[in-house]
Amino acid sequence: MMPASQLGKQTRFLPMPSRRMATLREVVFLLLPVAGILIALGLHLALPDVYPPQYEPSAYSLTLFVCLLIYLVFMIFACFFPKLRAVMLHLSGLLLVLFLLLEALDIGTLKTGILRLPFIPSPDKTLSTFTTHTAELGKSLLASLQLLLTGLAIGSVTGFISGLLMGWSRLCSYWLSPVLKIIGPVPGAAWMPIAVAFMPTSHAAGLFLIALAMWFPFTLMLSSSIRDTDKRLIEAARVLGASDAYLLLHVALPSSLPAIFTGMFMGLSNSFSALMAAEMLGVKAGLGWYITWAQGWGEYGRVYSTVGVFIIIFFTLITLLFKVRDHVLKWQKGLIRW
């Protein structure tokens, strides 16, 4: 039986597997991505490379092979663990199409030359960035992550403090809300020249942009949510003997948690574009910088692979945020699903 808590939450391709061992039908579904990989690999190896001339592909077939191995390992485990199987069954259709599209791109570029360089490199060319420029990419990844996470931390902490102050104290709200209203809506990129002029280093300027991107929605959501705390709950707490400080920390703040997460989600999305802007401020490493640099050389393969890394970072951060939220807000029903 499906547990009652799962009802209405189903977004899966196939129903939750109930039995411990995989059925034949489930194994067939699990094998779909394998078929996709084998088709892609077969076509890639069988068809001759024609464009560009004298290009020696290696990364694409290697990637497909690694994907195949990883998938098979997961699949074996999935046959015995229903939870993992449910996730993989959900992904199987999507993965099949992904590999088929990848092979279609391979045929369009490397195998026929219909799609031309430099704007549309073959998947092999794009993937080769990871094998041939590992050190550069790794360094840029670390630089970006460091900048992004530090900026987000600064923005969240300041946003938390200013949101709390503005939500709770009329005086703070009076003096801070003009700052919030004027500074907040200005897009990060517009701050670039000012940040460069007033910050000691370009790194500090970058931090400022990212922190600002997080600070604004965080403060706005938190302060307005605290101000709008359900009056009945405040009265109930007061009648039960809660002091002002207790009221703030144990009623206003927890009831504002949903708004805090909304603010953080908005801030996180803003911070990604702020990161791109920040990395144009003369930094020496970073994914945004790397993209601009690769574009300057017409190396679109590297542009796409770096964008791919960006997607992985952003996806991971947002997923992480939603996971934390799902745990913290387990008392709330009807959450937005990611």
Binding site: D230, R232, L233, E235, A236, A237, V239, L240, G241, V251, P254, S255, L257, W331, Q332
Partner: peptide, 15 residues
């Protein structure tokens, strides 16, 4: 707290 009030809506703390 010596004068307790119970509201029409239970006004429980959701969290």
């Amino acid at each position: 707290y010596d004068r307790g009030l119970v509201f029409q809506s239970a006004a429980l703390f959701d969290w």
